[in-house]
């Protein structure tokens, strides 16, 4: 798979930063506007899927390896769990919202909810892209990953 035509490659070059920006916006504004961690994470993953389809799997594999996306996914779950566990140590409840709530409709408000959404977004983005890369790469049972 050597990628698609030059039209697709050029449009992908211009569009992929915008798609990632929109995904990050959806994740970070999850407590203010419609959206949240899950759709934003899938948007970020779909940008990497677009890169993989347009440029071929070798170039996309240099940008973001499968092991890296697995690490990102596990990191997202860990952020979410640690934020939930911190509530026990601070106030005695699981999932306690221990940060100050702040003014509504500001970007820094609602306590731990934006941080939780960042964790969920990282988890979903890593998960979807890891599954896609697994479907693409593991076809012949070979994984071109250098030993570290």
């Amino acid at each position: 798979m050597k990628g698609m035509t030059i039209i697709v490659k050029t449009i992908t070059k211009f569009l992929s930063p915008l798609i990632i920006l929109f995904g990050v916006y959806i994740v970070l504004h999850g407590h203010l506007t419609p959206g949240g961690g899950f759709p934003g994470g899938v948007m970020i993953a779909s940008c990497f899927i677009l890169l993989t389809l347009a440029y071929g799997k070798e170039i996309a594999y240099k940008k973001l390896k499968r092991s890296t996306s697995s690490v990102i996914e596990s990191l997202g779950v860990l952020i979410f769990l640690i934020l939930a566990l911190l509530g026990i140590f601070v106030g005695g409840y699981f999932f306690l919202n221990f940060l100050p709530l702040g003014h509504p409709l500001k970007i820094i408000s609602a306590g731990i909810i934006p941080l939780c959404y960042i964790g969920v977004g990282l988890e979903v983005a890593g998960a979807i892209f890891a599954v896609f890369l697994a479907l693409v790469l593991f076809k012949a049972g070979e994984e071109k990953e250098k030993p570290q």
């Binding site: 407590h31 203010l32 779950v77 919202n97 408000s109 609602a110 306590g111 939780c116 969920v120």
Partner: peptide, 24 residues
Amino acid sequence: TGSANLITSVVLGFRAYDTLGEVT
């Protein structure tokens, strides 16, 4: 919960256990 989006206040506030299960 202080979140202006009511869906978020349900998903990560009142029913955060559901979201934890979904992520898991």
